[in-house]
Amino acid sequence: MVPLSWYIVLSAVVFSIGVIGFLTRRNLIIAFISIELMLNSVNISLVAFSHYLQSIKGQIMVFLVIAVAAAEAVVGLAILIALFRNKPTVNVDEINLLKG
């Protein structure tokens, strides 16, 4: 039997990789993918908890997270397209319309 902590550590590592990806990459699409990565790592831990606690609530939560992730990806990519139309770049360090 695989201990719960293995899943959790796996989840933590993937989450941190997602964080690193989000913080370091210039490409906005990769940044989005990193966010998906983080959401997935959380899903792993939720499902693992659900299994080991013998509760179905974790799976429901994952279901909701997937729905929200889908919505987020759709809106995010739409924003990206709208942005790209105004300024043809996807590099986050070149997009600073909100600079104070």
Binding site: S5, I8, F15, S16, V19, I20, L23, T24, R26, D93
Partner: peptide
Amino acid sequence: KRFQKQWPLGVFAGMVFIVFLVLILS
């Protein structure tokens, strides 16, 4: 250019995250 200027800071933050999460999970 794949990475931003401040990429070491990002990597550092990620590493610290791993350490912290493992500490918590233990």
